[in-house]
Write a protein that binds this DNA or RNA. Structure first.
Lengths: 267, 267
DNA sequence: TCAAAAGTGTTATAGGTACACCCATGT
DNA sequence: ACATGGGTGTACCTATAACACTTTTGA
């Protein structure tokens, strides 16, 4: 079978499923030439399209938030939503997540991880769009998100008290929070949220916040001592009205040796 | 902004990215009317398409295999590949996985779980196709896969000794094996591979095979005793030339109570 | 000297590892 | 009676959880 035959097979399948030839667009010829594009349904251009939605969790001093934009465009205009958009045909998924994030929120250099893909047929009111969810964990104070492109507002929203979201974004958010909790135990994504030199109290508060769970100070520290990739420094806090805390730092090479696929932070 | 305006925006974006109007298809008008479809590139119909690839792991008595088909069609004709195909526009992802599996392998009633999505721009030689991977674990002896549709052969392949696979299927397979190993610890997918009444030796061999790791008999059993959702029956093996083994069964309700997101089989 | 938070130590209990040993069955 | 694999028990060690205690700083 040649490439030409293959193409023919694809068209045959298309016809079988859609009960029509994919030339429906021909009927729009005159309107397109007159630049009258308004009446052409989206689905004629994206028979099936894919998008990326970014679930950006923001952490700061014991508070976990999520970055939402207000949609300035239909559908779901004026609804709060995850920053997300269609993937360009010539763009890798990961790159797309970063580009979309930059377009809508002005954020750059974010370390995103793919989680789940959502593909319910009716999840987008204007056509078939499947969406790949990406999560990231960032320190809110390090960043200044600015709404741009079709995003009309942007805001860090406290989890547990969220407005009604566009599309199935609530489902995506909930699922991604679960994924974040798994990720933070196995991947060093938490390093993006702490300063290079951090105290164990900072580390504990971070894990308590993300995992929504309290830990005993002594036991937490005992566990840390067993982790070779957390290196104690000869430096400590200054000018605090209590015993100064010793700084630690993350040792990436040591981490790479140790990790073998399982949870590293087994908390 | 109305739906019409929204459609216009989409088109504008399309033009910006592709440096052309999406009316390229008009140039094929005469060929289409003459039913001469061979020369039309697939990408004109699926500007971007999505597919599903099924990684079906087959288990039987201490052996783990993966179900592959030989492609009877271009591209990668005569290569071994994961059973996978394009998703229909009106089909949910999960349903698509089951349909594709049935089309290519004749298998039905398989419990598949979504894992990772692969979207490299050049992963499909004939156009942009992103693919969602699904995994399943089945007992090879329960099923008789039969190659159909464009699959020319079908075979259970031993892991660790695989032929060169089509597309990026080797990468998908490797990543999905990792996912299977995580899944089997947290979800009761292993129940599909054992008879309803099974012995602890059977269970241990299964976990050893999938996780590629040996366990101590006594310690394995001690752990099992702590799992309320594994119920000891008053029944045992018959006609074996050694002490007969006691049967156990899986208690789904008890399992649902216990599981709280983390690994249940912490092996 | 006191408040505040860092940091250590102690205990009882649970769980893990390695191994030896006994048990029930068919031949 | 013995080979075979099922099944249990023990001893040692290491985690875990809860809690009390000591240390270092600025005010």
């Amino acid at each position: 079978m040649t490439k030409r035959e293959y193409a023919f097979n694809i068209v045959a399948t298309f016809v079988k499923i859609n009960k029509q030839m994919p030339v429906k667009m021909l009927t729009y010829r005159s309107r397109i030439q007159q630049d009258d594009l308004y009446s052409i349904p989206i689905s004629d251009f994206f028979q099936s399209a894919f998008s990326v939605d970014c679930v950006i969790f923001g952490y700061h001093e014991g508070e976990l938030k999520v970055l939402l934009i207000e949609r300035g465009t239909e559908p779901y205009k004026n609804f709060w939503a995850l920053p997300g958009d269609l993937v360009y045909p010539n763009e890798d998924l990961n790159a797309s997540a970063l580009r979309i994030l930059k377009d809508l929120t002005s954020l750059t250099h974010i370390d995103v991880k793919q989680v789940h893909t959502f593909g319910r047929v009716d999840r987008h009111p204007l056509g078939r769009v499947i969406t790949v969810a990406y999560v990231a964990l960032v320190e809110t104070q390090d960043l200044v998100p600015v709404a741009s492109s079709w995003a009309s507002k942007i805001k860090w929203h406290t989890l547990y008290r969220l407005p009604k979201l566009a599309f199935d974004h609530r489902e995506i958010l909930d699922s991604s929070l679960d994924d974040l909790r798994k990720l933070i135990k196995s991947e060093p994504i938490w390093t993006k949220v702490l300063p290079e030199k951090f105290t164990l109290t900072q580390l504990q508060l971070l894990f308590e916040t993300v995992l929504n769970k309290q830990f005993d100070k002594g036991n937490f520290r005992k566990k840390i001592r067993g982790m070779k990739f957390l290196k104690k420094l000869n430096e400590s806090e200054k000018s605090v009205a209590h015993r100064p805390s010793i700084y630690y730092k993350f040792d990436q090479p040591k981490f790479n040796e140790q990790k073998d696929g399982d949870y590293v932070f087994d908390l």
